[in-house]
Structure formats: C-alpha cells, structure tokens
C-alpha cells in the first residue's frame, strides 16, 4: 500500500500562504487553530527560506506514544488521525510533537483545552466517511474522493508535495538533479526514518 507523505521543497516555497488559507477555508478550521503554517527563516537576510509546516504523519509518531487515552492512531497508508470524541485535551501530543502540529481550540469552561485539531492529510477522521459528523469535526475527506490534500493541490509553485512517498521522492529527486543542488528535504529524517 502507498505510504502518504508531505514534502515541502524550500527552494520553491515563496511564502505566499496559499496552503494555509486553502486548508483553513476548505475545512472551516476554528479561529486560533492552524493546521498548517508557513515558517520563514532568516527573513530579510541573505539566504532567506520559507517552509510550509503541518503534521508530517510520522512513522513511529511520538503523539501516538504519549496519548493517555489512545485517541490518536495511524492508518495503513501512514496518515495519522485523531478521534476528537476520545481526546481529553491534555496537550501531551503537543509536548511530544517535533513539528508543533497539534492545535487546541480555546473557549471552554475553566479555560480547558478543547479536543486536539491537526492536519488530517484531508482524510477526515474515524467517523463514517462522507458523513455530516465527519465533515463537522474534521473537514473534507478528499483522500476518499481521490483528490490530493488542499494545501498541496493549491500550491502555486508546487513546492508542497503530498501523496505516495515513492512518487513524491521521485519528483523531488529529479528537481534536485536538475537544479544541481544537493539540499535534503527538511524534516524527512525526523518524520520518516525508522529507528
């Protein structure tokens, strides 16, 4: 089975924020929650680079390891999903995540964190596929529709790649070869290297 991965080509990302807006609008993500964001390093200096970051859907994901209620799980295709009905909002996944992906809506009683929200790779959640409940809790299920995630589909420079890991790696390898630059994909070792 195909293994789903994200890859952001930092030589192409132009910090337009299209991926962030596409995700937030497409899934009606609540205020204060960003499933994806663009980080710009050395802004205004020589060597400025931007990268779009979200949940990387890691192999051996630390969030799954620390969740005290087993609310987070990984599908056979590598996509890491959360059950918002099980989640208690303790925030341990946020402490364990190297990419700062888990987000928590605020505004509950006693300032309690709501159920964790993060990138679903546009694959919905544990509720019935295409059900109203799934859409309300997790947004669109584009993977089940056979479409790529919104962010990558929307990316104007095709910096953000999403899909079958082998295809993504091939596209990136060809780009690196053509450019002649030997830059590694940021975060791939952290997210996908098996220990």
């Amino acid at each position: 089975m195909a293994r789903m991965k994200f890859l952001c080509d930092v030589e192409r990302c132009i910090d337009c924020g299209g991926c962030v807006v596409a995700c937030k609008e497409g899934h009606h993500v609540p205020v204060g929650v960003n499933r994806r964001r663009v980080i710009t390093l050395k802004e205004g200096e020589p060597g400025e680079k931007s990268i779009s970051v979200s949940c990387m859907h890691c192999a051996d994901a630390p969030c799954i390891a620390v969740c005290p209620v087993d609310a987070i799980y990984q599908r056979a295709d590598g996509i890491v999903l959360v059950s918002k009905k099980t989640c208690i909002g303790c925030g341990y996944c946020f402490m364990a995540c190297p990419f700062g992906a888990p987000q928590f809506p605020s505004g509950n009683v006693f300032g309690r964190r709501g159920a964790m929200d993060k990138c679903t790779f546009c694959a919905g959640g544990p509720e019935e596929t295409f059900s109203k409940e799934e859409k309300n809790l997790y947004g669109q299920n584009r993977i089940a529709e056979g479409k790529p995630p919104l962010c990558a589909g929307m990316c104007a420079t095709k910096a953000l790649l999403a899909g079958d890991a082998d295809v993504v790696a091939d596209v990136y390898r060809e780009r690196v070869f053509q450019r002649g630059s030997g830059v590694n994909a940021w975060g791939w070792n952290k997210a996908y290297k098996k220990k």
């Binding site: 630390p62 341990y92 402490m95 364990a96 990419f99 700062g100 940021w186």
Partner: peptide, 27 residues
C-alpha cells in the same frame, strides 16, 4: 539544510532533542 531544519524546529517546538524526546520517552 540541517542548520535550517534546526532553526525551524527551535521556532515551532523548542529544544525537542533535549526536552521533547525526554518527555516522549517518559510519558
């Protein structure tokens, strides 16, 4: 790219190698 990656991690999740990994193992 490792330097850039480290800068990014520092921004989004602090000293993950030092505290995040420790927390993940313990919890």
């Amino acid at each position: 790219s490792a330097d850039y990656y480290q800068m990014m991690i520092d921004l989004v999740s602090g000293h993950w190698q030092k505290y995040g990994q420790l927390f993940t193992t313990l919890q």
